[in-house]
C-alpha cells in the first residue's frame, strides 16, 4: 500500500514535470492551475505515505536514505505550496516539479528503498532536529530555484532582444523578494534544527556538527552581506545556488545520522 502511495505521488510529479515541459515548450505557460494541482496531488499522496510509514516505524520516517529523499521532496513541495501560492510565483512550479520528481525517483530506484527496521526508543529531539533540518533544506531548495530563475531573467533583461522565456519568468523584483523571504525562513528552520540537534545529547562526530554549522554559516553570511549591501541580488542568487550545492553535499552526513537513528 505504501509503495502504491509513493508510486502515485511520483506519477503526479511526473505529470507536473511533463505539463511544465509541454507548456514551456509551446510558449503558452499559464501560471498556477494545473501545475499546482499536480504538485498538490503528489504532496497529498506523499503525506499519506509518510504518515503510514511513520505509523509503522513508530517515529518520524527519516531512518534511511530512501526516506530522507522522500521527506526532502515532501518539504520542497510543502514550501512550494506555501510560498508559491503566497507570492504567486507560479512558474516556480515549473522548476519545482522536475526537482521533486527527480528526488522521488532517486528514492524509488535507490538501493535503500526497502523499509529499515529501527531499534530502540525514538528520541523526540533527534526527530525534531532531523525533520526541521529537512524542511529547511526544502525551503532552501526553493531559494535555489528562485536564484536560478533570477539569474535567467537577469540575463534576459541584459540581452538586446530577450528570448521567449523572458515573458514567462516573473519580474526580478518579485524573485528578489522571494529569495529574501525563503532565505530567512530556511535559515530560521535550519537554526531551530541545529538547536534541537544540540539538545539530542548523542555523540554524532565533529564532522557532522562541522558540516551543519558550515551550511548554517554560509546562509547566515549571505543574509548578513546582503543586508549590508555588500552583495547585490545577482550575487545573492549565485550564492543561493552555491550554498544549496554545499547543503546537498552534507546529505551523506544526514544519512549517517539516519543510520544512527536506525540503531
Amino acid at each position: 500500500m505504501e509503495r502504491h502511495l509513493l508510486a502515485g505521488s511520483t506519477l503526479f510529479y511526473l505529470l507536473g514535470f511533463a505539463n511544465s515541459l509541454l507548456s514551456l515548450g509551446a510558449g503558452k505557460f499559464r501560471p498556477g492551475r494545473l501545475n499546482t494541482v499536480f504538485i498538490a496531488g503528489g504532496f497529498a499522496l506523499q503525506t499519506a505515505f509518510l504518515w503510514a510509514r511513520g505509523q509503522d516505524l513508530g517515529r518520524c520516517p527519516i531512518t534511511s536514505t530512501f526516506e530522507v529523499l522522500v521527506f526532502l521532496s515532501w518539504s520542497i513541495a510543502l514550501a512550494y505550496l506555501v510560498v508559491g501560492a503566497a507570492y504567486r510565483i507560479s512558474l516556480l512550479g515549473a522548476f519545482t516539479a522536475p526537482l521533486v520528481f527527480a528526488l522521488q525517483l532517486a528514492a524509488l530506484l535507490g538501493p535503500s528503498a526497502r523499509a529499515s527496521q529501527p531499534q530502540g526508543p525514538p528520541s523526540g529531539w533527534l526527530e525534531l532536529h532531523a525533520a526541521t533540518s529537512l524542511v529547511a533544506y526544502g525551503v532552501l531548495a526553493l531559494a535555489c530555484v528562485a536564484g536560478v530563475m533570477f539569474l535567467v531573467q537577469e540575463r534576459q533583461l541584459k540581452m538586446r532582444v530577450p528570448g521567449s522565456i523572458f515573458h514567462l519568468l516573473p519580474p526580478i523584483a518579485t524573485l528578489t523578494d522571494a529569495m529574501r523571504r525563503l532565505l530567512w525562513f530556511g535559515l530560521g528552520l535550519l537554526s531551530a534544527g541545529i538547536v534541537a540537534g544540540f539538545l539530542v545529547r548523542v555523540p554524532v562526530g565533529h564532522w557532522k556538527t562541522g558540516a551543519s554549522l558550515l551550511v548554517w554559516a554560509a546562509y547566515a553570511a549571505i543574509l548578513l552581506l546582503w543586508s549590508r549591501h555588500v552583495l547585490h541580488p545577482r550575487r545573492v542568487a549565485q550564492a543561493c545556488v552555491a550554498a544549496f550545492a554545499l547543503a546537498l553535499a552534507t546529505l551523506p552526513a544526514m544519512n549517517a545520522l539516519a543510520g544512527h537513528l536506525a540503531k
Binding site: H167, L169, P171, T174
Partner: peptide
C-alpha cells in the same frame, strides 16, 4: 508581446520592477 517602443519599454520595466 509588445509591438511599439513605448509598450516594449513598459513591458521591460514591469519585468524589472513588477
Amino acid at each position: 508581446g509588445s509591438v511599439s517602443v513605448g509598450s516594449v519599454a513598459v513591458e521591460l520595466a514591469e519585468k524589472i520592477f513588477g
